[in-house]
Design a protein around this nucleic acid. Structure first.
Lengths: 224, 224
DNA sequence: ACCGGTCTTGACGGGTTCCTGACGGGGCCG
DNA sequence: CGGCCCCGTCAGGAACCCGTCAAGACCGGT
């Protein structure tokens, strides 16, 4: 039916979840720490992620932050802490639901059903190609002419935001907000500087942009 | 920002929710029983519904059942009962989230943010075609004969306002207000200048407008 | 402490867009 | 027939936006 990635460091709970989810007709992939969670998410392309916040290596919110830039499906967060402050933080970090331990298994399944029902109609094609370069959203890698291109974190954030909406215009306010934060809405300088760098690295002729076009006064557009 | 329909029979809680939601930047519509809830939902077109299960006239699940066939936005259910059986029933009846009373207000707001972030799937067909040009509202792009047409921000704002109401007359006051702001209600000059530019870019014969027609003394009309 | 890479910030020239006023034509009404 | 209102057109200057460059701040690793 659908593929679920379960991330938890408790082997017993992991086992219980695996059995229950499989009985409910799901395909199950598991990870016991944050690093493998991110790796598995990129490799297995799950439809939904169940994420425990208490992991041995990374903080759960870090996993969430690593997931969100490219993973568009729902994320259900599990946590031993029922503090409402934690809930708000996790939800605002990109989680779609938050369940406190101990939880009722049938409720968890119902919440997963509710999340999957809203099913992402978005085709999860995490790799975008043009005649001159390729962007792999999941692997966070860009290649031009077969050669990998080095991008700084900011450059990547900007490019992925544009590439995720192929052909659509992305307003400068939206770009500034998602890449730098809501406080930088007016700093259109940044866009000019970083768009120039991206064009220098990706465009065949940076002076005459073909893929990263600018719409004066409105924003930028990636056209494949 | 977005419109929230709150359904609850407790006037005190209703008041608290109205104040808090409005402070968070939402537009709030309220209903105290199931019948008016269904009526308001149809009339006000809310983006999200907060629904208390304990209503005087109808059972909350009945309201949910009456809502779901046509309302595609998210529904967050409130309930005094924290029983997991109730939760499963409500979620499987079409609810997107379930919060037990008493609840923490900041958590409720965060859950609403999470639901709204998933954005309502736009049922509207955001692309308008004529024999000579095409307007894609979502991508913010206009093409004439397959070739993209460059529009300035003001031109686009004006065109999209007209195209959003195909065949209907749009008053000059409304155009001036939404494009330039409420202070420019009398500057009908602007409309003349920019309509001329749009016609020059889109009409096959700008001197004899076929799509962007003017209704003397009233406003303009886009006829596909 | 040094150093390389990255991010911020400021300034400048060239091009575009916006606003504004003026002019002429056409329809409506007295 | 004449006056008035409304609309379309044009052009010029001011304001704005973009691309570019370069220097300083910041940060992490050595």
């Amino acid at each position: 039916m659908s593929r679920v990635l379960v991330v938890d460091d408790d082997p017993q709970l992991l086992r219980a979840l695996r059995i229950t989810l499989r009985a409910a007709g799901h395909e199950v992939v598991t990870a016991a720490d944050g690093r493998t969670a991110l790796h598995e998410a990129a490799a297995a392309h799950p439809d939904v992620v169940v994420l425990d916040l208490g992991l041995p290596d990374l903080d759960g919110t870090e996993v969430l932050a690593g997931l969100r830039p490219w993973f568009s499906g729902p994320v259900l967060v599990l946590s031993a802490r029922g503090d409402s402050h934690d809930k708000v933080a996790a939800l605002d970090a990109g989680a779609d639901d938050y369940v406190s331990k101990p939880f009722d298994m049938s409720e968890l399944l119902a919440r997963l059903r509710a999340l999957l029902r809203r099913g992402a109609p978005e085709v999860d094609e995490p790799v975008v190609r043009t005649a001159h370069f390729t962007v792999d959203l999941a692997a966070r890698q860009v290649t031009a002419g077969g050669v990998p291109v080095r991008l700084t974190p900011t450059e990547w954030a900007l490019l992925s935001e544009l590439v995720r909406a192929p052909g659509r215009l992305v307003g400068q306010r939206q770009l500034l907000q998602t890449v730098w934060g809501p406080a930088y809405e007016k700093e259109t300088n940044y866009l000019r500087v970083y768009l120039a760098q991206l064009r220098r690295k990706l465009e065949p002729d940076p002076a005459a942009p073909r893929y990263l076009r600018t719409e004066p006064g409105m924003g930028y557009r990636f056209t494949p």
